[in-house]
């Protein structure tokens, strides 16, 4: 190339942008600051417990945060890809119940049963995705239908098969202890959960996928402008179907983790969590219109909601206030996102 680009450092038009302003064009900074604010807030309001120094406090809120954060990773990627999955919550229940059924009623070893449950999750995700892509209906509607269908199946089949509203004694299955060690055990004397490591690991994988893999570029463009992306040769439909499969697959993993942890599974498990995942993603900077967002931010969003959940308990407030907190956080996050998006678009 004869006209090589001049060295970056000497470009006089690159004005040094202040750190504050540069951070304000990043999608994940709001979630980070918000998590710190919530932490400091509860270290004041719930000062009966030691928020800074007591590892047991960290263990309990991170347990709650991992509960939200694991599935929030693929939900965030899906939202950046321009779609929603309202069935992500109920999938946790369906998967846990299926695992419980296979382990107790079909007398399967827990390991092959887990493989079947994951395949079940991927299949539901594939059906969600292919329906959205083929019918061009909003994913909000398609996955709302999946949500209600599975909710009914969970309750009705559990009652029919067991005569109860839950499947018990999952720990009688072969291989249960080894599976629990990997997915749902406590790893320190303070009862840090191993699922926190899964949360951190999935966040790293998701963030890498989004920023460093080819697939990440496709996710951004599938949500940013699907028509343009298709015209230029991006396999938009395939990208979206894969995102739906990832979401349902990880929800199934979460269902497995819960079944192993609790040793039983309620037929109503997971319902309502679909909105928590979406709140995590929105707090993490994901736009409802797609094309923009952050997995790292979603991590801090989940951390924030985990702290709120536990903080309200430690502050000895009525736990019903949790919903109000979540609503306020969602509202503030959307306002901040709009601001950041406008800055990113009109940075000049």
């Amino acid at each position: 190339m004869s006209t090589a680009a001049p060295p970056v450092a000497s470009d006089e038009r690159l004005v040094a942008i202040g750190l504050g302003k540069r951070l304000l064009t990043r999608p994940d900074i709001g979630a980070f600051l918000g998590a710190i604010a919530v932490f400091l807030g509860f270290s004041y309001f719930a000062r009966d417990v030691n928020w800074f120094g007591d590892p047991a406090i960290w263990a309990s809120w991170s347990d709650q945060a991992a509960q939200y954060g694991i599935v929030a990773v693929p939900v965030a990627l899906l939202m950046i890809g321009g779609e929603f999955d309202l069935s992500a919550g109920v999938m946790i229940g369906s998967s846990g119940l299926l695992l419980g059924y296979l382990a107790t009623h079909a007398d399967m070893n827990i390991w092959p049963a887990m493989v079947i449950v994951l395949l079940f999750g991927l299949t539901i995700g594939f059906l969600n995705g292919i329906t959205v892509v083929k019918t061009r209906l909003p994913s909000f509607i398609v996955t709302l239908a999946t949500f209600f269908i599975l909710q009914g199946v969970n309750a009705a089949l559990t009652l029919k098969l067991t005569g109860q509203t839950a499947i018990q004694d999952i720990d009688t299955a072969g291989g249960f202890d080894s599976a629990r060690r990997w997915l749902a055990s406590e790893i320190t004397q303070y009862d840090f959960k191993v699922k926190v490591l899964w949360w951190v690991g999935l966040t790293i994988v998701g963030a890498w996928l989004l920023s460093k893999a080819r697939f990440g570029n496709w996710i951004y463009s599938a949500g940013g402008d699907p028509v343009a992306a298709r015209n230029i040769g991006v396999p938009v439909a395939r990208t979206k179907v894969m995102l739906f499969m990832m979401t349902s697959g990880v929800a199934s993993l979460m269902g497995i983790i819960e079944a192993l942890e609790l040793r039983s599974m309620q037929s109503k498990e997971g319902i309502g969590l679909e909105f928590i995942f979406i709140i995590c993603a929105v707090v993490g900077g994901c736009l409802l219109t797609g094309g923009y967002g952050s997995v790292i931010g979603t991590f801090f969003g989940a951390a924030m909601l985990g702290m709120v959940q536990l903080g309200i308990v430690f502050a000895q407030w009525d736990s019903n206030w949790t919903f109000t907190f979540q609503g306020v956080i969602l509202f503030l996050a959307v306002m901040l996102n709009t601001l950041i998006r406008n800055r990113a678009q009109k940075a000049r």
């Binding site: 570029n217 951004y220 463009s221 940013g224 402008d225 028509v227 343009a228 992306a229 015209n231 230029i232 040769g233 991006v234 094309g291 923009y292 998006r341 990113a344 678009q345």
Partner: peptide, 18 residues
């Protein structure tokens, strides 16, 4: 319409699909 995503960076748009 230029087949570009406004929220994506220049280099990501430049190589989109390739």
């Amino acid at each position: 319409d230029l087949a570009m995503c406004p929220l994506m960076s220049i280099w990501r748009n430049f190589f989109l699909g390739e």
